[in-house]
């Protein structure tokens, strides 16, 4: 690891001022230190955000949002009473994220900003396009963990479990910049390889993700996060699905379906959401939704199984939603 200057600013403004060429933000460090140890990140300056007051707070504000400071740790979020009350889906996602120890250090902001886990990207022997190199080694190589949606010259999958869950809850992110700060829907936060081959979100070198806001879910909403990984802990998703559904009587009035582990960004399947709204959640409809979800999948040589996984997971999630509504009725 190359040496660096290490700074702990006390305000966001100070932090923003310190940003620039060669500077990098350190949150929990569970991803960044790994990248630095492998020589993938070589910051000249590390800006540690932990000295900034209030940046780790989780609070509900009167306008109906839950606001999560970007520096809140994953375990802090998972243990928060408001989360248990309104967003059990988040807890499901967090419990399946990394390991208990990592969750005690890793932050919510860092989880959304973490770099890809593609083994070619992480490996020093493969100068891939995401490292300003030659191309995508997964194409024609060992591609079983790679994308079945949205790939284009690069087939990484977004590694976060939290991101699809937050997206299914219509989360927004607050981004601070020296000149202003803005709020962006999480759906617009991530960028795929068509837009950038070297970064996975819209943040510029001059910006900091300061908070995530989640609206209170609609009445009668049900949410769940299901994940398949080869190992039952400390393992990234082969595929995952975050579903949030609300009803009026038997009619679906609101639906969010977001897939994880299958695309370079958390993959929202709007076409499925649309077909679910306005109707009952019957077995037949669920089957059609599952087919629809993988309509535009373009699997690589060794990851066709992900198509089946997505269908299987979505089927499970929608049946669980359906059962929960029936239970609620009783």
């Amino acid at each position: 690891m190359k040496t660096f200057e290490y700074i702990t600013p006390e305000t966001i403004d100070e932090a923003l001022e310190l940003l620039g060429e060669g500077a990098q933000i350190l949150a929990g460090g569970t991803d960044l230190l790994g990248e630095m140890k492998r020589g993938l990140a070589t910051p000249k300056r590390l800006i540690n955000l932990k000295g900034i007051q209030g940046l780790a707070d989780i609070r509900s504000i009167p306008d109906g949002f839950l606001t999560i400071g970007s520096l809140a740790t994953l375990s802090h979020l998972a243990e928060h009473p408001l989360v248990a009350q309104h967003y059990p889906l988040l807890i499901e996602a967090l419990q399946r994220t990394a390991s208990p120890q990592i969750r005690n250090i890793a932050t919510v902001g860092g989880n959304l900003c973490q770099r890809p886990r593609c083994w070619y990207y992480r490996h020093s022997a493969f100068p891939c396009i995401r490292k300003h190199g030659e191309g995508c080694f997964a194409m024609g190589g060992q591609d079983r963990y790679h994308a079945i949606f949205g790939g284009h010259r690069c087939f990484i999958v977004h590694p976060s479990d939290l991101a699809p869950a937050l997206m299914a809850l219509d989360a927004e992110v607050r981004i601070a910049h020296a000149d202003d700060s803005r709020i962006v829907p999480l759906t617009d936060f991530f960028v795929g390889p068509r837009d950038s081959l070297t970064q996975e979100n819209i943040l510029t070198r001059q910006e900091i993700l300061t908070a995530i806001r989640i609206p209170v879910p609609p009445d009668n909403a049900y949410g769940t996060y299901l994940k398949v990984s080869e190992r039952k802990a400390t393992d990234f998703a082969l595929a995952s699905v975050a579903v949030s559904i609300a009803w009026l009587d038997t009619q679906v009035t609101h639906a969010r379906v977001v897939l994880g582990g299958v695309a370079p960004v958390p993959w929202r399947v709007k076409q499925v959401e649309e077909m679910l709204i306005g109707d009952e959640l019957s077995g037949k409809r669920i089957e059609r939704a599952c087919e629809r979800a993988v309509d535009d999948a373009t699997p690589l040589r060794h990851n066709r199984y992900k198509v089946a996984l997505v269908k299987g997971l979505l089927r499970k999630a929608l049946h669980a939603a359906h059962r929960s509504r029936e239970k609620g009725e009783k």
Partner: peptide, 14 residues
């Protein structure tokens, strides 16, 4: 036993 065979197993499993 799992990795590459997951896909092939899906059909019959369904």
């Amino acid at each position: 036993l799992v990795q590459d065979d997951l896909s092939t197993r899906q059909g019959p499993l369904g």
